[in-house]
């Protein structure tokens, strides 16, 4: 009953660097504040999307990752989104909680759910497709594999974008990849782990 699936592209954002399919495509000075690093990627990619500046940092990572992964163009509007992380929206939760002492900020509160990122990506690419946001202690390749296989097997999607987008205490770890029925590396736990934790240098 198992079907063959392929990883066709991947993006990693880690340690002030952005990689696409293993190639370094952007690098900023280390220890830059996250908002500046994110803006640097946005400018470098020549993106024109004013909504970007309204997003919280977690959504910015997700948005930028998808733009780079798909060359800012998702053809198949049924492309499903399966995203996960470890810290949920805690970075923004804490920022919102700081406003609670005086004037609770509605524009921060709205980002205190991790799946808002999926909404942002769906709006940007006009995807009215399957979405899910999962939380696990650490990157769990098998969970992505099991859930996306279900979507393919039940014919709910022909393409899936997966994302591990984690941010907390100014530390971030972003890994996105695209799955299709054919045309790339085998979609299995081993390959996924290799892509997630390669030896770049």
């Amino acid at each position: 009953m198992s079907i063959e699936l392929s990883i066709i592209n991947s993006v990693t954002i880690r340690d002030s660097k952005v990689y696409k399919n293993g190639q370094l495509i952007f690098k900023s000075e280390p220890d830059l504040v996250i908002s500046k690093f994110l803006k640097g990627i946005y400018r470098d990619q020549n993106l024109k999307y004013p909504k970007f500046f309204k997003m919280d940092s977690l959504s910015k990572f997700g948005y930028l990752g998808v733009e780079i992964l798909t060359n800012a163009n998702i053809q198949d509007k049924e492309t499903a989104l399966i995203f996960a992380n470890s810290a949920s929206s805690l970075e923004t939760d804490e920022a919102y909680a700081r406003t609670m002492a005086e004037f609770p900020s509605p524009s921060l509160f709205v980002y205190t759910l991790p799946n808002i990122m999926l909404g942002e990506i769906s709006i940007r690419h006009q995807l009215r497709s399957e979405n899910i946001f999962l939380v696990s202690e650490a990157f769990d390749p098998a969970l992505f594999i099991d859930y996306s296989r279900g979507l393919f097997q039940q014919e709910k999607a022909d393409k899936v974008l997966c994302g591990w987008v984690n941010l907390h205490n100014n530390e971030y770890d972003v890994f996105l990849w695209e799955i299709a029925r054919s045309g790339g590396i085998d979609f299995n736990e081993e390959e996924l782990k290799k892509l997630y934790l390669p030896t770049h240098e």
Binding site: N131, F133, S136, D146, Q154
Partner: peptide
Amino acid sequence: KPIIVSNACISGALAIKTANDL
């Protein structure tokens, strides 16, 4: 290992779907 579905106000039903699919 437990799995967490955190997808705003559809989470409860989405977790049932997730259980079925897994």
